[in-house]
């Protein structure tokens, strides 16, 4: 599998117009490199950039962290549980 599965939640799913998408990756990349590819597919996400957190395979990740084909990336708006 050469793609990265992207899950979107809450306001990010609204902005993207989908709750799940896939981004093709040739080899590895960082989250920072993945972001513009995702925004190309779903431009509505662009204004949310500074509010978002990301998880790779179910754990919070930083923009410089690596993403590989087969990984699951979650796009997380500010959490509002409770």
């Amino acid at each position: 599998m050469s793609g990265v599965r992207i899950l979107l939640f809450g306001a990010a799913a609204d902005r993207a117009g989908t709750r799940q998408t896939e981004v093709a990756l040739n080899g590895g990349a960082t989250l920072a490199e993945l972001w513009p590819v995702l925004v190309d597919l779903h431009p509505g996400l662009a204004p949310m950039r500074d509010t978002l957190a990301f998880a790779v395979n179910g754990e919070y990740a930083r923009m410089e962290d690596a993403v590989s084909p087969g990984d699951e990336v979650a796009v997380l708006p500010p959490v509002s549980g409770g």
Binding site: D14, Y60, V79, G81, G82
Partner: peptide, 26 residues
């Protein structure tokens, strides 16, 4: 801590639409 790190989101559903709490998107 729940409000800080647990990936849970709520939206307020109003009589005239909804809004995601914390994102002001709706």
């Amino acid at each position: 801590r729940i409000k800080e790190i647990v990936p849970i989101w709520k939206r307020e559903v109003w009589s005239d639409g909804y809004v995601w709490v914390g994102s002001q998107v709706g």
